[in-house]
């Protein structure tokens, strides 16, 4: 297609771009400007340069939240992606059982975070929780999933995996659908083992979806918020406070919105680097 017609192609992008610039990019830029001010919910903004940023790095609570967030993503994303991929491979077939299991897995994702945390509280709580019943059944001491500083983050990983399996699973499923049937037929003729079919046919075909899911889940899990907010309020001793909870506390509870904006910018930069740079690089320069 010619460059001249190229301009009209912009029309396809324009409607989305308009909303995107208006309701996401513009607010982001205001946030950058806000982060250079001392301000509260009701005005009173004073320009203070980079002071909010230096204040952040002196702030032990923020540093702890940063560490928690990185650790959470490092634990959560690999588990989530692996399990979702395995599920998609196992359930990519017709039949009632597979369909039912797909729906059940997805059903865990339909709950809102409020509801999901209520359900898991009933599972994890030491007093009368499902797991503590199980522990007592086998004669073990129930674990304090939500109040032991070493267990609380893994517990959040567990419930987040449970809650988030739905989307990556359906993304993998729809990617599997796009693999041409002929490839498998060829593999069948070669008497390939299931593993080598997976290794040499399925996995390469899934790579774009896999990268997409990893990038997206990284971006998403960096924004962990509702689970600790509703279950632990970041405790014990800050062990489950992620960055977004920190941002929420400073912005909405302390009304320290300039400071919260500065913390958001750091989170934003972090997500950009960790989740998107590899994607971008592939998109822009390494296109196959």
């Amino acid at each position: 297609m010619t460059e001249r017609r190229g301009w009209t192609h912009l029309l396809f992008v324009l409607p989305f771009l308009a909303v995107y610039l208006w309701l996401l990019v513009y607010p982001l830029l205001t946030g950058v400007s806000l982060s250079l001010h001392r301000a509260n919910l009701f005005g009173g903004a004073t320009f203070i340069g980079l002071e909010n940023y230096t204040r952040l790095f002196r702030d032990a609570t923020f540093r702890q939240a940063l560490g928690n967030t990185v650790l959470f993503v490092a634990l959560c994303v690999p588990v989530l992606v692996t399990v979702a991929l395995a599920l998609a491979l196992a359930l990519n077939r017709a039949g009632r059982f597979a369909a039912a299991l797909r729906s059940i897995v997805f059903a865990s994702s339909v709950l809102s975070v409020t509801v999901m945390t209520i359900v898991w509280r009933q599972v994890l709580t030491v007093d009368g929780g499902l797991l503590s019943h199980v522990a007592q059944g086998v004669g073990a001491r129930p674990l304090a999933f939500l109040s032991d500083p070493h267990l609380v983050l893994p517990s959040l990983v567990l419930i987040t995996v449970w809650w988030s399996l739905g989307l990556p699973m359906i993304l993998f499923l729809s990617a599997l659908q796009q693999i041409p049937r002929s490839v498998y037929e060829a593999a069948a003729l070669d008497r390939a083992t299931p593993w080598s079919v997976f290794r040499h046919v399925t996995l390469p075909a899934l790579t774009p979806a896999l990268l997409l899911v990893i990038a997206y889940e990284c971006a998403l899990q960096f924004q962990l918020f509702g689970q600790p907010q509703l279950l632990t309020q970041g405790g014990p001793n800050g062990a489950s406070r992620p960055m977004v909870l920190y941002i929420y506390e400073t912005g909405f509870n302390h009304w320290d919105v300039g400071y919260a904006a500065a913390a958001s910018q750091i989170l934003f930069a972090l997500i950009l680097v960790v989740a998107l740079v590899p994607q971008l690089a592939r998109r822009l320069w390494g296109r196959a």
Binding site: S147, P149, Q233, G234, G235, P236, N237, G238, E249, N253, H254, W255
Partner: peptide, 21 residues
């Protein structure tokens, strides 16, 4: 910000009482 103060104070007190700090 008395609510926020109460939250931060309780946070730290809970850590002290349970022996984490």
């Amino acid at each position: 910000r008395q609510f926020a103060i109460q939250e931060m104070l309780s946070d730290e007190l809970a850590a002290a009482i349970t022996g984490l700090k």
